[in-house]
Amino acid sequence: MSSRNVLQRSPITALITIMALLFLFLPLAVVVLFSFHKTGGLSFPFKGFSLRWYRQVLSSPEFRASAENSLIVAAASCALTFVLGTLAAYGISRSSSRWRGPLSLLFFLPITLPGLFVGLALLVFFARLKLELSLRTVVLAHFVYVFPFFFLIARAAFDRMDIALEEAAADLGANHWKVFRRVTLPQVWPILVGAAALAFALSFDEFIITFFVIGPDSTLPLFIWSSLRRHVDPSINTVSTLLMTVTFGLSAIAFLFALRGERARARTLELSLRGEMDPGRSI
């Protein structure tokens, strides 16, 4: 028996993985299941399916307003992050300046801070500037929160690229912008789209920071929070399920695009190694 086989059979770690997946998904499954409950009961026995809570939630004006705000905030902060993040990641990846280290640290910093501090610091800052709390301040706060995630993924994508292709394009007379648009971007765009979907999902679900900087408005997580505070209402299950559907969907998109980016990269690498890169073909 080869040793490889022995390593591959690892029953204890396999068992732990299965248990952990159950631990991760069963509680969520309970929420989804009870969002379809016929009665208002929140625990077993389950009395049958109905869509009454969905009808109730979807016709609630508060829910609609919160959902709309969540979409606006996530779209705006995702767009802001996409533009500034792509520029920053490309700049850092192609730079050899001595500011590279400190800047990377600054771009990573928000991840290392609990949201409590980001939220409170921004609350104090906005108050000092006499800036009224609104969805605008939430967008700025979400930008700070999602930026590092986008930056890390985008930078890794730019770092792993074959720079020789960009150099070749520049040697052939393409200017900076043309090199970026025609050579760099086609190689990384699936990963950038994936990272943007991730940024959108993170913003859509953010509560910890939002709580401090939103003022009188509401987003979906704030809607859930306030119904959690008031009473236990079966419609929370429904709102939760709808929220998770959006974030799950986005994470699936992010994952598929990341896979696609991986494959595109492998193909480019293979072609350029063989020296058969056809410049007329898009990747």
Partner: peptide, 12 residues
């Protein structure tokens, strides 16, 4: 599972 909402998990 990373994207299952933070508040939803607390609620769950």
């Amino acid at each position: 599972s990373m994207f299952a909402s933070y508040l939803v998990r607390i609620y769950a």
